[in-house]
């Protein structure tokens, strides 16, 4: 599974790093940083989907 973060769309709602802390971190201003290189590690698929489904800015997409 692939995961993409559109940093231009991110407004720092923080849903992703609270629901998927192994995939996302917050920078010093609260905007999201992707912790993985685009490939979702095994076992994190559910968390990836949750992050994508709860981002109010539609800034996260998962494929596969």
């Amino acid at each position: 599974m692939r995961i993409v973060l559109d940093s231009d769309a991110c407004q720092g709602h923080g849903r992703c790093y609270s629901l998927a802390p192994d995939l996302f971190d917050s920078d010093d201003e609260g905007y999201a940083v992707l912790k993985v290189d685009g490939e979702v590690p095994a076992g994190q698929e559910e968390a990836a989907r949750l992050a994508a489904d709860n981002c109010p800015e539609f800034a996260i997409t998962v494929e596969g």
Binding site: H13, G14, G30, D53, N54, C55, E57
Partner: peptide, 23 residues
């Protein structure tokens, strides 16, 4: 609820600065 893109803190450039504190 598993899919919840709610707008309680607004959306776009004015997203609530205090949202982490409020939560």
């Amino acid at each position: 609820r598993q899919r919840n893109r709610h707008l309680a803190f607004g959306v776009g450039i004015h997203r609530c600065v205090g949202s982490n504190l409020a939560r």
